[in-house]
Computed example of a mutant assay.
Amino acid sequence: MKKLTINTLALAFTLAFSAGAMAEGMSKTEYKAGKSKIFADFKTARASCDSLSGNASDICAAEAKGNEKVALAELQARYKPSEKAHYEARLAKADAVYDVAKEKCDDQAGNGKDVCLKEAKAAETAAKADAKAQMKTAEANATAGEKTAEARSDASKKGVAARQDATADKTDAQYAVAKEKCDTYAGAAKDSCLAKAKLNFNK
């Protein structure tokens, strides 16, 4: 894997599905047909991995499985739309991207691989934290939608708290990446690196 960064992975997470697709509904017949197509696509994709070898085959298999998992979650969210279903679809995307990223990290060795894995985990943590914050904010807003101004103010506070929790989770994950990068040093240089990481992330 050439270069795995938190930003590029985080961007991948945002491409899970459009808001328009999430809002759609579908019949049971359409849902069943959708599932059949997803399973067929998975078999085709998985079969194509057989021509590969080594880690390339593992990456291919992870991508095929991840695409199937995401497609099924998104299908469910369209069939029975709800904040929870949309949340589950976002989690599926986070898990899928993380699983592929982990396999790609196997192309590296030593500290480079360790950093790669930490960055992949940080991106997954960020995506899941954002998904949770979005769900909590949406639920709070929906609950307060037809209530008093006081209730709407409380919902706003809950949304802010959810976003703050997400930020804290992402900061912890990024700090873990920074610490892992310090392992390339030794002695005073490593101590300095760790001290800088602590300062940057207020630890």
Rank of each mutant, 00 (worst) to 15 (best):
S153D: 15
K118R: 14
G54F: 01
A131W: 04
N141P: 02
G66E: 03
A77P: 06
K32I: 12
M26R: 07
K104G: 03
L91Q: 09
D106A: 02
M1C: 15
C105A: 00
N141D: 13
S51Q: 15
I6D: 10
D41C: 05
E30T: 13
L194D: 02
F39H: 14
T137I: 03
Y79K: 14
A71N: 06
M26G: 00
L4T: 03
L52M: 13
A129I: 07
A127T: 03
A19L: 13
R152F: 05
V115K: 06
E119P: 03
R90D: 12
D58W: 09
D169Y: 07
V100T: 00
A16D: 11
E139I: 06
A77G: 02
L199R: 14
K179E: 05
A61D: 05
E63I: 04
K179Q: 09
K132T: 08
A77T: 04
G112T: 05
K121G: 07
K2E: 07
M26I: 07
V177H: 00
G34T: 01
A144E: 04
A149P: 12
N141I: 10
T148S: 09
C105M: 03
A138Y: 02
K3H: 02
A173M: 06
G54R: 08
A64T: 01
K179F: 06
K170A: 14
R90L: 11
F17Y: 12
A21R: 07
A149Q: 07
A197L: 07
K179C: 08
A101D: 05
A109I: 10
A123V: 05
A16N: 13
K128M: 01
S156F: 13
Y31G: 02
A155M: 08
E139S: 10
N7F: 14
D169Q: 11
L91G: 07
T44D: 14
F201P: 00
Y98C: 01
Q134A: 15
A77H: 01
G54Y: 05
